[in-house]
C-alpha cells in the first residue's frame, strides 16, 4: 500500500507540473485515525496531502461529472471507480479525452471501527481497474468471490408476507436523505423522479408508502446498471441493506438475459435498453 502512495504522489507531481492535468481527484487523511475524505489537488504543493491506504472507501467516479468546463481531470481509479467512469462515458456525461485515469489494483478497503475488510470489498468481483491510462502497481489475480447472492436467496426463500414485513421494516426506517442516490454512479439524472412532486411520481412525505415507492423505483432504475460498489449501503445513515436490492436485480438479469457486468466497457447497452426476439416468454 505504502509504495503505491509514493508512486501516486510522484506521478501526481509530474502530471500537475507538466500541465497534462488541471487537477487530480484522490483521497486525503481525515481528522480521525482510519478516516479519509476525497481530495482535489490543483497545485503541486498539495501533492503531499494525497494518500492511498486501506481506508480510501469513497467512490471517485462521480466527482468529475460536476465539472462542465473543458479542464483535464486526473482521477485515481480502483476497480469500482473504473467501472463507474465507464458508466458515465456510456451515458455521455463526460468525454473520455478529458479524463486521465490512474489505475490502482485494490486489495479491498477496511472498516475503520472493526479493522476487517469491508463487506462490499469482500464481495468485489473486479479488483483490477477495467479502464485506465496508467497502472500504478501490478494487476492482482481476481480471487473467487463467495456467493454474493446468499442474502438475496435467503430473503427469496421467505414467504411473501415475511418478505413484505422484512422490507416494510427496512423502509420504515428510511429518512429519504437521498445519500444513496447522490453517491450512486448510475444516478446522473438532472432532476430525479423523487424530486418531481408536482408531476405526481413521489410525494415529499416520509411515510412508509412513499419510502417504499422511493426504494423500489430506485431499485428498478439503478439495479440493472449497478456496479456493486456497495457505496449506497456504506453511506446510508440508517444502515439499510440496500445492496440486497441491487443484487436481486443482478441475479434476475443474469438468469433472464444472460451475464451482464455493468460498466465493463463504455458501449454495451444495459439489459433494458435492448431486447432479443427469443427472450424468456412468461406472458403468453
Amino acid at each position: 500500500m505504502a509504495n503505491t502512495q509514493e508512486t501516486l504522489r510522484e506521478r501526481a507531481r509530474i502530471l500537475l507540473e507538466d500541465g497534462t492535468l488541471d487537477y487530480l481527484i484522490g483521497w486525503e487523511a481525515g481528522r480521525f485515525e482510519g478516516q479519509t475524505t476525497p481530495l482535489i489537488i490543483r497545485t503541486v504543493a498539495d501533492v503531499d496531502r494525497l494518500i492511498y491506504n486501506e481506508y480510501c472507501v469513497h467512490l471517485l467516479a462521480k466527482y468529475p461529472l460536476a465539472d462542465k468546463t473543458t479542464k483535464k481531470i486526473g482521477v485515481v481509479v480502483r476497480g469500482c471507480d473504473a467501472r463507474g467512469i465507464n458508466l458515465a462515458l456510456k451515458d455521455g456525461q463526460i468525454e473520455r479525452d478529458r479524463l486521465y485515469l490512474l489505475g490502482i489494483p485494490c486489495q479491498g478497503m477496511k472498516d475503520a471501527q472493526t479493522g476487517e475488510e469491508l463487506k462490499k470489498c469482500r464481495e468485489c468481483t473486479h479488483r483490477n481497474p477495467v479502464v485506465y491510462d496508467e497502472l500504478l502497481g501490478d494487476l492482482l489475480e481476481q480471487s473467487a468471490v463467495a456467493d454474493r447472492f446468499a442474502e438475496v436467496n435467503r430473503i427469496e426463500s421467505l414467504s411473501a408476507d415475511e418478505r413484505y414485513d422484512y422490507w416494510a421494516d427496512v423502509f420504515s426506517r428510511c429518512i429519504r436523505c437521498k445519500a444513496c442516490r447522490d453517491v450512486c454512479p448510475t444516478c446522473t439524472c438532472k432532476e430525479c423522479f423523487t424530486d418531481q412532486a408536482a408531476k405526481g411520481w413521489q410525494g415529499k412525505e416520509t411515510s412508509l408508502a412513499e419510502n417504499q415507492n422511493y426504494g423500489i423505483t430506485r431499485m428498478f432504475h439503478s439495479g440493472e446498471r449497478c456496479l456493486e460498489c456497495g457505496e449506497c449501503e456504506r453511506v446510508c445513515p440508517k444502515g439499510l441493506p440496500l445492496m440486497q436490492l441491487n443484487r436481486k436485480v443482478i441475479k434476475d438479469v443474469h438468469e433472464l438475459f444472460g451475464e451482464y457486468i455493468a460498466g465493463i466497457d463504455d458501449c454495451t447497452p444495459s439489459p433494458l435498453d435492448h431486447y432479443q426476439l427469443d427472450d424468456v416468454e412468461e406472458f403468453m
Binding site: K90, D91, G92, Q93, T188, C189, K190, E191, P269, D273, H274
Partner: peptide, 13 residues
C-alpha cells in the same frame, strides 16, 4: 429539455 441529461437511452428504444 431541463431534465434531459443526454444519455441517449431513448434513442435505441
Amino acid at each position: 429539455e431541463v431534465n434531459c441529461r443526454g444519455c441517449g437511452d431513448c434513442v435505441g428504444v
